[in-house]
Design a protein around this nucleic acid. Structure first.
Length: 223
DNA sequence: TGCCAGGCCGGGT
DNA sequence: ACCCGGCATGGC
């Protein structure tokens, strides 16, 4: 009998199909997107990325040479643009200073050292670090986000107060440790969270996981 | 038209 | 240790 999370994965995959989800055309674009999407709609991030692409700046050394105030204007559509410009600077200075601007060299560092290095950068928290590790470097790290938390909590599979690493451990210990699986599963969580397991007005009756809800419906958030 | 979106940091208790 | 405000744009 397969684990519950494997069953969830199978159901979502059957219902939605493979997402082939890759949040960028290159590893560097993925890295930039990971910072820009912090608490922000992906659609806004795409506008900011489009600005960077139009300016031919989707490359570590080129972007590193851009002054913060210019960077701010380029990424303005992504929101929190002053904060994010500085977070991107911190990341770029790290890549430049520590790895000579080479993501190849950076990714060669591997787990768990690279994760620790990323977390030490100002403005890079667990989700941003893990997005870079999974989607840019292809390393087997499950990305936990607000959608993941909500889906797992509403079905009673985790506590509402479960922190990032508890949720990550739960998923990684329930699944084969394979990057392609984590990649696809995370994308399926996002799709589910956006269209069915939404924050307000969830569509549980039509959700592919409806039969896996606890007795009496989804867990409600504590008041 | 308000509410929300793929977080993270820093300051106050 | 915990809680909370700040950060900002654009779509539904």
């Amino acid at each position: 009998m397969p684990g519950i999370m494997l069953q969830v994965y199978q159901r979502l995959l059957t219902a939605f199909g493979p997402q082939h989800w890759w949040p960028g055309e290159t590893p560097f674009e993925v890295m930039v997107g990971a910072v820009l999407t912090q608490n922000t709609n992906w659609q806004n991030v795409e506008r900011a990325i489009a600005n960077l692409r139009a300016a031919d700046l989707l490359e570590p050394h080129a972007l590193y040479l851009v002054p913060v105030d210019e960077l701010e204007e380029l990424i303005r559509p992504a929101g929190y643009f002053r904060v994010k410009a500085r977070r991107l600077r911190a990341l770029l200075e790290f890549v430049e200073g520590r790895y000579g601007g080479s993501l190849e060299w950076m990714f060669r560092r591997g787990l768990p050292e690279l994760r620790d290095e990323l977390l030490a950068i100002h403005g890079i928290g667990p989700e941003t670090a893990d997005s870079i590790l999974l989607y840019a470097a292809g390393l087997p790290v499950f990305v936990v986000d607000a959608y993941t938390h909500r889906v797992l909590f509403r079905h009673g599979w985790i506590d509402e107060e479960a922190d990032y690493h508890q949720i990550q451990d739960y998923l990684q210990s329930s699944l084969p440790q394979e990057a392609p699986l984590y990649n696809e599963f995370h994308a399926l969580f996002v799709h589910l969270g956006k269209h069915y397991c939404r924050k307000s007005r969830p569509k549980c009756p039509e959700c592919p996981l409806r039969e896996m809800l606890p007795e009496g419906g989804p867990q409600e958030a504590a008041s």
